[in-house]
Nucleic acid binder design. Structure first.
Lengths: 345, 345
DNA sequence: TTTTCTGCTGGAACCGGTTCCAGTAACAGC
DNA sequence: GCTGTTACTGGAACCGGTTCCAGCAGAAAA
């Protein structure tokens, strides 16, 4: 293919001058710049990023590690990351990390270890201490979404506070039998989301003077998961709660579908609230606390760019590293929640 | 960082020997190989893929262009692509291409034009002639999923035949008023999927001697899209069909949700069939034709690797290029379809 | 014994850019 | 007039690998 030497020859200048003309760094007279650009266009020259990054150390490439692609939150984040990075001229290399496995190790030991990235964005991955260390040792900026990760600037919502808000919404409507359906805290894959939302729920209940006995039902973090638990929790009319706080909109929708199948009126007989702001929420008239994954993605990219722009002054970095950007969630009230129509006992 | 020269020095050999020892190409005695490997491990040497690809021309990186990330089919394909590529030691660089736009042009003109990829996989993107040309001019293997793309090996299901199968299933059950709810063929973004499924539906109807008047309702290709159209199509009891073939499982589920809200029994009063094999299908007892996106992804990767392994003999390539791998779909019957319980007229 | 082959190694060129440094010309200030 | 600065350009080194080529043993073939 055509290299910059060909461009230089055609334009009648030295390689160095051609490089300056095309990259825009250093002195080049306007006349020669135009000549070089014309020559480049004429032979269809495209720069080799490999060669450039070999000497500059910059790759214009960002690595993204993410545990799921198909789940709503993650795919939204991913889309926004890709858009934001592309707009800044960065490529995005994607690593879909499942739970601890040989592949996972190979990503950390082999793929991430090579000097291919200017920075890394970690989305909602529960990282082991060793993995965090390894990432830090890369010496490249690292931004987290949904953290926190040790010594890493992380973008996240406050899961505890959000869960508390959701619970308080139900309690404020006058519900007594409030139940939480969410991910199992034992399943560490989902970061601390499960346990944090659970603890937000518990603390809101305790603050309201409610018992926290037998009011948490773990389920798979998906619509079928919510559906299944919904069927069993709502199955017995005598023990049926009047309100359910679901850890995600998908779970909430699964619960609503189960309720409808059982002939339970929502919200007359059962109030349901979720967290997410899922596009299906409107269709199921689901009251929810919206988090905004795309905004989180955009913020992560701009945080990364800020770190990249910062001159590599190791001391300043260590000092300022490890802070947290907490994003607000907002309550969107639809008609899946109301006061308890037929309060029992 | 440590370079291969450091390894060579430590092992007491030349750079060339160290390179051979670590890459496994060319003659190296077992004794020196071990010494080099030990030295590399000692100083934590990791090869720079940039430097290597600069001279070999191989980047061990594959570009993937895809129009959506959050839609089920696409996210499944993406996950399987990532896994398969990773297993083969390839990085995956992701481009999420929306409809025609400036960003889209920049991907083709700037990002893809650089020599960063060994190959490109295009997933369900409707490419313009100019874009196909540009990809071909890269001189790198190109594999499509959900094509066909001109002169490109493509993995796909037969959308026409699959739609025909779905329609025939409903007709075979004795349904007379069969309706198709699917994507608008005018919306070109989704490749030819919309129009192909529609034409498969039409041809099955015609073959069965049915009229094709007013039996297609375009909708957004999503669950809310199906829900909305479902409400309006099913709203009037006098014109209500007894069976609906939805172009995707998400649309089908939207229709089912609408039917349930309207108090219409499925399948007693309404049969619904979809296409996909979506994980929600089971929960809604949806009869569907499963396509297997993960298998499509895996096949695309192995096809790409085959092309990469092939010695670059331009003639042989041109000759063999442009064939199609058609994957079967399989009918999974659940309880959203049955014979018409109360046939009208 | 001489020649050929095989296994192994090192030196050097090379991939395609960027950047440092030296050098020149023009122009300002003294 | 001389010196200092500024704008611009070219030569060469360099990034970190891979690969070609030559050289050199020792073993096998003639």
């Amino acid at each position: 293919m055509s290299a910059i030497a060909d461009v230089a020859r055609l334009a009648g200048v030295a390689k160095a001058t051609a490089s300056r003309a095309l990259s825009g760094r250093g002195y080049v007279s306007e006349a020669t710049r135009l000549r070089v650009v014309a020559a480049a266009r004429e032979i269809g020259y495209v720069a080799s990023p490999n060669a450039a990054s070999l000497v500059t150390g910059r790759t214009k490439n960002v690595g993204v590690i993410i545990p799921f692609i198909s789940r709503w939150f993650f795919s939204e984040v991913l889309e926004s990351l890709e858009q934001a990075l592309l707009a800044e001229g960065y490529d995005m290399t994607l690593y879909n990390l499942p739970a601890a496995s040989a592949e996972r190790d190979s990503v950390f030991e082999y793929f991430l270890a090579r000097k291919r990235f200017d920075g890394v964005i970690s989305v909602g991955v529960a990282l082991s201490e060793a993995e965090v260390d390894r990432l830090h040792r890369l010496g490249r900026p690292l931004i987290g979404i949904g953290g926190p990760i040790r010594d890493v600037h992380t973008i996240a919502i406050d899961d505890v506070a959000t869960a508390r808000l959701a619970t308080e919404h139900l309690l404020g409507l006058g519900h007594v039998d409030v139940v939480h359906v969410g991910g199992d805290p034992i399943d560490e894959m989902d970061f601390r989301v499960h346990s944090q939302r659970l603890s937000g729920f518990y603390s809101a209940m305790r603050d309201a003077g409610r018992s926290t006995d037998r009011c948490f039902y773990p389920c798979e973090f998906s619509m079928p998961g919510g559906y299944e638990v919904g069927l069993s929790v709502l199955g017995d009319p005598r023990t049926r709660p009047t309100a359910i706080f679901a850890a995600s909109d998908e779970i909430a929708i699964g619960v609503i579908v189960a309720a409808r199948e059982l002939g339970i009126q929502v919200p007359a007989e059962l109030s349901v609230i979720g967290i997410d702001g899922h596009p299906y929420a409107d269709m199921f008239r689901l009251t929810t606390l919206e988090q905004h994954p795309r905004r989180q993605g955009r913020l992560a990219v701009s945080a990364l760019l800020t770190e990249l722009a910062r001159p590599t002054d190791a001391d300043a970095r260590l000092e300022e590293d490890g802070y947290l950007t907490v994003l607000p969630t907002n309550l969107v009230i639809r008609s899946s929640t109301s006061g308890p129509h037929r309060p029992r006992s």
